[in-house]
């Protein structure tokens, strides 16, 4: 209670206070409520972090140590050999040149897929938001409903079409497939964003005589950088993590990283090398994890925009 005297230079004011509670209610840092809240959160955090930890420690141990010990114990002798092997010489059922081939395949698939799908969807979302034509909403509704249809229903007709086009089994075929299936969510994302921009801007540009493409490139594009970043995050992680399309639409030479990882780890031949497996798993998860940790809030925004409104 003496606090009032020392804290305030204004003694006349301090006189006005009487005995009894004043200022902040004193709180114990270790109140029951705090213990419960932080305890529960910490417990959950451990559950979520444990697999990452296990992956890292396993990938740094030698096989003898793994056979001897406990998956949770830190490595006694750190070795990077599993990483080197996972990258360059781990065996799938077919060949033994490691994950590197899958990594580069994934890059070759992902980069054009991301660019093509975002280019198409952003222009499309812009057309839907600002240049509505009769029937546009109908096609858009079909597109959004289509996002809920299990891929298995549409896979085989696509196989036939790609075969007819001579694209089945090639990287180009897979790029096309990613662009098609990325379309609903991306179009929705862009449409909602462009709708949220002030309409007066678009009207003013039209009165100034700008056309469809001019308005898109000169006005909409420069204003929409954040949403393009969100779309990129969404697509980079989504395409990198894809397994089903990779396994259906490519051949072993062009398998993306996820498919190759699965083949390495679940290959029935030879002795199981758990450390190499975990190194390979971490390598495959590295790209999306880096995107996630770097992008932070934008990632959350992306999934929130995609999920809540989808």
């Amino acid at each position: 209670m003496d606090k009032s005297l020392t804290a305030m230079p204004n003694l006349a004011g301090a006189d006005r206070l009487s005995a009894g509670p004043q200022g902040k209610r004193p709180r114990k840092v270790l109140s029951g409520r705090n213990i419960m809240v932080y305890g529960a959160l910490t417990f959950a955090a451990i559950y979520y972090l444990l697999p990452l930890y296990v992956m890292v420690v396993t990938s740094l141990k030698g096989m003898p140590e793994i056979r001897m010990g406990n998956i949770f114990s830190p490595p006694m002798e750190i070795t990077f050999e599993p990483w080197a092997k996972a990258w360059a010489s781990a065996c799938t059922g077919l060949n033994c040149d490691g994950l590197s081939r899958g990594f580069w395949n994934s890059v070759k698939i992902m980069v054009p897929s991301v660019i093509v799908s975002i280019a198409i969807a952003s222009v499309n979302g812009y057309a839907l938001a600002n240049w509505k034509f009769k029937g546009a909403e109908l096609f858009f509704t079909i597109l959004i409903i289509g996002a809920f249809i299990p891929y298995q229903v549409m896979i085989y007709p696509i196989v036939i079409v790609l075969r007819e086009l001579g694209l089945y089994g090639t990287i180009y075929g897979l790029i096309l497939v990613h662009s098609i299936f990325g379309m609903p969510i991306l179009t929705l994302l862009f449409r909602n964003y462009f709708v949220s921009l002030p309409e007066e801007l678009f009207k003013a540009a039209r009165i100034d005589g700008a056309g469809f493409w001019q308005i898109y490139f000169r006005i909409m594009l420069p204003m929409s950088l954040p949403i393009f970043v969100v779309a990129m995050i969404l697509q980079v992680t989504g395409i990198w993590n894809d397994f089903l399309f990779g396994v259906v639409f490519t051949r072993p030479e062009t398998y993306p990283m996820t498919v190759q990882l699965n083949n390495i780890v679940n290959s029935v031949q030879g002795v199981k090398e758990y450390n190499v497996n975990m190194a390979a798993t971490l390598l495959t998860g590295a790209i999306p994890l880096i995107v996630y940790f770097v992008s932070g809030r934008l990632f959350v925004r992306g999934i929130a925009a995609g999920a809540v409104k989808g």
């Binding site: 206070l17 009487s18 509670p21």
Partner: peptide, 17 residues
């Protein structure tokens, strides 16, 4: 909201906390 300093009385009762 909790004040950082000072007191509040309602009906002559110190209700600050």
């Amino acid at each position: 909201l909790e004040p950082t300093e000072g007191q509040i009385f309602i009906k002559d009762k110190n209700v600050t906390w």
